[in-house]
Amino acid sequence: MKVRRLIPYLYVLPAFVFLFLFTYYPAGFALFRSFFHWNTSFIQPEFAGLFNYRQLLQSRRFWQVVSNTVIYSLSFIGASTILALFLAVQINKIKRAGSFYKATFFYPTMIPMAAAAMIWMFMYLPDYGLINAYLRRYGMSSVNWLNDRNIALFSVTMVGIWKYTGYYMLLFLAGLRNVPDELMDAAMIEGANGRQRLFKIILPLISSHLFFILIIAIINALEAVDQIYIMTQGGPSNSTNLIVYFIYQQGFRFWDMGTASALTAMLIVSLLLIVSFLFATLGKKVYYEV
């Protein structure tokens, strides 16, 4: 009897050990090392107190990266979820060839980000890129998509939206399956308009999906790095430098592991705060029963 109760613990043990070794231990180690000088001058780490944090908080560059990341995240999360919801609601109404549209919109999700970034780089080329070719054909002037510091962040955000919208759309579609037709029919008969149906019936019923999509969209936004590395390397003028690329830059390009650890610690803590805040507020309102 006793052994039986132990068995589930044994089954989760390997996964737990794995997660501990490769997630919680490195995260804790980064937090620990963030209080050390650890760079090309200090090959052996040396205690530095809050030095790394102070340096970061005082540097304009850090705040530029924070602001880039916030702008990227908000526009990415907003645009991709709203677009995904819109597409899902429309595709849900399509009676014929629905799966064709689903597959088409989902396709970008299956392309690895590195390949997607290469495709977009070609589309963004200033002189012979696809987008500027179209612009010129219709008499508009070319845009320097990746080399203009006022536009570059928008251009890399587009890649993120393009890649993830189809995925979120598919998740929304799964949620819409939970909205019973009878309920919608009843609402129509009672004279509810489109907006009322969306906000009073659909959104509450798919709130568990919406909540899940929001959480993964936040994570997708904060972990964005592939397209930055390939397309802009954070430039021009540091305008597309996002937090994960910044960590990589400090850690591996400049080999300043102390600063990189401090950044990692800040990222982990803020992610934790955001997610627990969301669970404490929105998470309470989510409707799980169907």
């Binding site: 510091r149 003028s237 830059q249 390009r253 400049f254």
Partner: peptide
């Protein structure tokens, strides 16, 4: 050097931009 070279590249991007 890597960090300063990157700084110089950025200066160039800033000013020409």
């Amino acid at each position: 050097q890597a960090q300063l070279a990157e700084l110089l590249n950025e200066v160039k991007e800033d000013i020409l931009g």
